[in-house]
Amino acid sequence: MSGMKLINYQGELLNSEVPFLKDNRAFRYGDSLFETIRIINGAPHNLGSHINRLFSGAKILSYNIPSHYTEDFFRAEIGKMLQANEVELGAKIRLHLFRAGGGAFRSESDEVNYLITGEKLPTNEFVLNNEGLSIDVFNEVKKERSILSNLKTGNSLLYIMAMNEAKKKGLDEICIMNQNQVIIEASQSNIFLVSNGVLYTPPLSDGCVGGTMRMNLINLALENKVTVYESSLSPQNLLVADEIILTNAIKGVQWVGAFRGKRYYNKMARTLVDYLNGVNLVNSDLGLQENLKSS
């Protein structure tokens, strides 16, 4: 992967190799939201879902969103940056939204700025990992359930600590638990279990990030007659599952090969990747509405 030479800051294309740091609240206090978006065939995948989540978070954080900050506006701004960087196939971008102005914990303004950065990717479709991931559970810090739980904010210390623990243990990923001792997600992904051909995933009410790929795959599964349930998950549920699948907007689907002493298959993971690429290659900007069965 290679970083793009030009970034988009408030509509202005800047050289990414020239250091610049505005005295902004995103840097000082983590007063920000972000979306990581996959680019396929030179266009953003599932952009509508990303923008909807971004604006939902902005409402919770009391950001004053300009009326022209629409899905079409950001599609154009992303496109401008991709064209300037000669991106025609696969890439990933980060769309940051942060409160402008100064102030300490009491902000001076609720106006917002945006920043778009990115990297080119070697593939133009979602590719399943060849080797299964090894995972475990992070126990040191639990994720508290709140109105912030489902958002992607600039405060990622929990996930950083979790991945540092995974690194120490020689793991590929690690699962996050909430204060009720149930597994809600992995440090960089949402999580699904497969048992007897049925998909299970934690409900948003347990505190997981409301992943756009999570929503996408739930709907693809339902459209293809795969039963999906929202259900709280314990480590014991992982140990008796047939498969463990991790999902995010950039990598799509990844299969887990080992959790503690248990080994897993990847049949459903392969099927979901086929579903995903079948949709992406037809329409890279498809947004789907979530339709779940509740357990």
Rank of each mutant, 00 (worst) to 15 (best):
D23G: 10
E230I: 03
S234I: 01
K293S: 10
L204A: 06
T123A: 10
I184A: 05
L95K: 06
I244S: 03
S189Q: 07
N129C: 02
G132E: 04
L204S: 07
E88N: 11
H45C: 05
I40E: 03
E71R: 12
P203V: 02
L89M: 15
I183A: 00
L115E: 09
G118R: 14
G132Q: 04
C208P: 03
A100M: 01
C175G: 09
R75A: 08
A91M: 13
A258K: 15
I160D: 05
P19C: 12
C175P: 08
G118E: 06
S56T: 12
L6F: 07
A104R: 12
G278W: 09
F192S: 00
G3H: 08
N280F: 02
G103I: 06
A186P: 05
N190Y: 02
N280Q: 07
I78A: 04
L217T: 13
I93S: 01
L222A: 13
E230A: 02
N150R: 15
F34Q: 07
R263N: 12
L47K: 14
D274R: 14
A269S: 14
L95Y: 06
L115K: 10
S107H: 05
E88L: 11
N46Q: 06
G57M: 07
E111L: 07
K92P: 01
I7W: 00
I176Y: 09
A43N: 08
F27G: 00
G154A: 09
D274S: 14
Q236K: 04
L151P: 01
K251V: 01
K142L: 02
F138W: 12
Y265G: 11
S2D: 08
D110F: 07
N196E: 13
M213G: 01
L276C: 06
K293T: 14
G211P: 03
L33K: 08
V228P: 01
G211Q: 09
L82M: 10
G103Y: 03
A258N: 15
E108N: 09
N64I: 08
E223T: 10
R38G: 02
L204G: 04
